[in-house]
Design a protein around this nucleic acid. Structure first.
Length: 422
RNA sequence: GGUCGUUUGGCCGAGGGGCUAGGCACAGGUCUGCAAAACCUGCUACUCCGGUUCAAAUCCGGAAGCGACCUCCA
């Protein structure tokens, strides 16, 4: 799969920031791009194979605009080029197909906006905008010195790198109209077919039931989640603790992508514990000794159930619920209440590997290059403690456990000796 | 104002005509030197008002709350 992810530059905000900090606009863009990449990496999001910049594809966007003009579905007005929505609609009846909008209804509710007088119809959108003198980002074109309309970059770059049509176009639900609707119109107008086969729209994020937004003062960045520090506009600390990248990822996976996802301390802590439980069960699996040859029915059904859930529009919450069922089976076997064959153990491990780690992209945050060393050290410490316990020297054994606890390592006594987690 | 979506137990969240996920929290129990973990048990919910149906959280109509969008910019 080839993933193409545009790096939008966002002219106005960047220009403002650049003036403020006396930097080149591209430096500002790079700063945010770098920060974004760092956060994505921590979340274990695979990096895209291509990440094109809109400003590096002005030629392609000009060509796109020209082809729409050639098709007679756009017009030049005062150096800007606008898409002729009404004419397009007469020919194709497709405008509004994605978003469920009806052109006639939009007519009645148009707000007062910039540059309306240049348009033949208020629903027309810009393909190329003539730049005002103070505009920093500007390029020459057959029509004026200016910049491409917002929707042009995705249409041009998607076609160039992914083919036309390509398979899946993603994005937030808030972009359905006008952005994605207009992308379809541009592509149909210039090529005769839609840009992609499927649209995947993810829902919004809310905080304590309220939309996350800068204007509401409840905008929390990923880095703030990771460090556990975020003050709201009244200076109140919103996060009770740091939330690790995998906690955030697991939390998001526990809701369907089309539903809104609501962040709260209570919900995030639930995810943290839930994921830790799955990871513990996975590690426990490695310690279970197989008994018997009979396979457990619940284990053999597991993989198919997980595939069914994924095939049902990526229903990751259901996949996770099956993994919790698997965790219970593992723990029951560990308690000696259930017998697992070697085949069962292999299958359980395989299902975790496939779905938790590969498909859902979770990873063990406790593992590091020092794992072997820590394991060795812990063995020594727990050995000493076991000796103390054998001598009923509770004072020493509790002291070791309490001290380890304070250092972030939990000791758990079992039938076959103690284990630890951190 | 218009269009669309949504409302599920203390919390997060699947599901979407009869079968009532899962996690967290809480309570009781088993095990244990104690604790933790684990296991067992309990907590059985679908905003409200009408309607359809033998049967509605689920379908239809309406109301309220919440949210997104309504073609400037991304």
């Amino acid at each position: 799969m080839c993933a193409d992810h545009d790096a939008d530059e966002g002219e106005d905000k960047i220009a403002k920031k650049a003036r403020l900090e006396q930097l080149e606009p591209m430096e500002v863009a790079q700063y945010y791009t770098n920060r974004y990449h760092a956060a994505m990496e921590r979340l274990n999001v695979l990096s895209p194979s291509i990440e094109p910049h809109a400003s590096g594809h002005i030629m392609e966007q000009i060509a796109l605009v020209q082809s729409i003009l050639d098709a007679g579905l756009a017009y030049v007005s005062n150096g800007s080029v606008y898409f002729d929505v009404r004419k397009y609609q007469e020919q194709t009846h497709k405008y509004g197909q994605l978003s469920g909008r009806v052109i006639e209804e939009m007519l009645a509710t148009t707000r007062d906006l910039d540059g309306q007088e240049e348009k033949r119809f208020s629903g027309d959108f810009a393909l190329w905008k003539k730049a005002a003198p103070e505009h920093i980002m500007r390029w020459p074109s057959p029509w004026s010195d200016g910049f491409p309309g917002w929707h042009a970059e995705c249409t041009a770059m998607g076609a160039k790198y992914l083919g036309s049509p390509f398979d899946i176009h993603g994005g937030g639900m808030d972009l359905i109209f006008p952005h994605h609707e207009s992308e379809i119109a541009q592509c149909v107008a210039s090529t005769g077919h839609t840009p992609c086969r499927y649209w995947m729209h993810n829902n919004m994020i809310t905080i304590n039931g309220q939309k996350m937004g800068k204007s509401l003062g409840n905008f929390i960045t990923l880095d703030e989640f990771f460090t556990g520090s975020h003050k709201d506009k009244d200076g109140k600390e919103m996060l009770e603790q740091p939330y690790s990248p995998m906690t955030i990822r697991f939390f998001i996976l526990q809701a369907h992508y089309r539903s809104t996802v609501d962040f709260s301390n209570e919900a995030l802590q639930a995810s943290e514990k839930g994921f830790a439980k799955l990871m513990e069960a996975y590690k426990t699996l490695g310690r279970i000794t197989p008994s018997g040859n009979a396979t457990v029915a619940q284990v053999s059904e597991l993989r198919a159930k997980c595939y069914d859930a994924m095939n049902d529009d990526f229903n990751t919450p259901i996949v996770i619920s099956h993994l919790f069922d698997a965790a219970r089976i593992i723990n029951q076997a560990n308690d000696g209440k259930l017998k697992l064959s070697q085949a069962d153990i292999d299958e359980l491990k395989g299902v975790f590997d496939t779905f938790l780690f590969e498909v859902m992209g979770m990873k063990d945050e406790t593992s590091s290059d020092n794992t072997a060393l820590i394991d060795g050290l812990m063995k020594i410490i727990l050995d000493i403690r076991a000796t103390a316990k054998a001598n009923k020297d509770w004072c020493t054994s509790d002291k070791i456990r309490d001290a380890l606890g304070a250092a972030g390592v939990t000791v758990k006594d079992g039938k076959d000796g103690a284990t630890y987690s951190y």
